[in-house]
């Protein structure tokens, strides 16, 4: 679909993750013999490149497939089709033992700081677990590494023997980050890492993620629905709608000059904490809801809600193309 995209991306920086034609379809079973009667096309043909050391933001509304994309890249969900390369190694075809080794290089930070930590483990055990699994040193060395990791994420190493319930949401998210960092990964998928936190705590975690990136040279795929946060942390942003990427550009560019009507509507819908700005802004109010991914509309997914839709939009799926330098959009009538 977007062959040009690959070429330009690699030219401007070395590619760490390369995703081509990624599809994740979930079967819906039913009927007399429990046959597959339909498919939820959660991710339906995603192409992405993530450059070494950058933060790529992935935004979209609930059900657009952004989390599934993140998980499919890490092979936590088996993709239905497509290729995912990390450092040039094709992950989708790796045998389980090989894939397991690769997992040290790619980690995940989860949304829910309450559900993602085992309540029966101490903080020390939680962070030590990946180190033990991958045999990174003897007991004493692992203890030292855990203490160091706690310090790195801004927690007192003294807390090592406490249980998750003794911590607040923000602190738990720090524990989850320490665990993700334990094996020194190069690539981290952060799935809504600050969505469950209060605003005053969100900023602490966002700053921490940025500091860690600078310190360890991390590459992030930052998945979130909050476009203000995504814009703040990301170098480039990809906008997803109903399983496909509709626009991809540098974050300031996307904000200043969105080309896809969906991006324009999404941006205009986000409230800005400034009454002067709010009074001046023109809001594009979209009609209706996101259609079901079981039976996505033909042609461009967005056409039933789009004010620019023409006949061609109902019939032909627009490919993701480079309309301006490093600015990709999948629309027949961009701008």
């Amino acid at each position: 679909m977007a062959q040009q995209q690959m070429a330009t991306s690699t030219a401007t920086g070395t590619t760490l993750v390369e995703v081509k034609g990624l599809k994740v379809h979930f079967p819906i079973k039913g009927g007399l013999f429990n046959r597959t009667i339909a498919q939820v096309k959660a991710v339906d043909g995603v192409d992405l490149t993530i450059r070494r050391g950058e933060t790529l933001g992935l935004v979209g509304e609930s059900g657009c497939g952004k989390s599934t994309t993140g998980r499919a890249i890490l092979q936590l969900i088996k993709p239905t089709a497509g290729s995912v390369k990390l450092n040039g190694v094709e992950l989708t075809k790796l045998p389980p033992a090989e894939l397991r080794k690769k997992r040290a290089e790619m980690q995940m930070i989860f949304q829910d700081p309450f559900g993602s930590l085992d309540p029966r483990f101490t903080v020390g055990q939680i962070i030590a677990e990946p180190l033990e699994n991958f045999k990174r040193g003897n007991a004493r060395e692992i203890r030292e590494q855990v203490a160091h990791l706690l310090e790195v994420v801004g927690l007192n190493p003294y807390y090592v023997n406490r249980f998750p319930h003794e911590f607040s949401g923000g602190q738990r998210q720090r524990i989850g980050i320490a665990r993700a960092l334990a094996l020194r990964p190069s690539f981290i998928v952060a799935d809504e890492p600050v969505s469950a936190l209060d605003v005053s705590i969100q900023a602490q975690v966002v700053n921490l993620l940025q500091d860690l990136q600078a310190e360890f040279g991390l590459t992030y795929l930052f998945v979130a629905h909050n476009l203000s946060v995504v814009k703040h942390i990301s170098d480039r942003v990809a906008v997803m709608y109903l399983g496909r990427i509709v626009e991809l550009a540098a974050s300031e560019k996307l904000y200043e000059l969105p080309l896809h009507p969906y991006t324009q509507a999404l941006l205009s819908a986000i409230p800005v904490p400034d009454p002067e700005v709010e009074a001046r802004r023109k809001r594009i109010i979209l009609e209706g809801d996101v259609p079901s991914p079981v039976n996505p509309p033909p042609g461009c997914n967005f056409h039933p809600r789009c004010w620019k839709a023409q006949q061609i939009c109902r019939e032909v799926t627009p490919p993701l193309e480079e309309k301006e330098r490093d600015h990709y959009v999948a629309c027949h009538f961009p701008g």
Binding site: S168, G170, V199, Q202, A203, Q204, V206, S228, K231, L267
Partner: peptide
């Protein structure tokens, strides 16, 4: 003031750093 400084704004300049409120309620 702390709340206003700790939220990222869609219309902020690139490279602005958030000022979080330390500690917890």
């Amino acid at each position: 003031i702390g709340l206003l400084q700790s939220i990222p704004r869609l219309d902020e300049k690139r490279g602005t750093r958030l000022t979080p409120i330390p500690g917890q309620p």
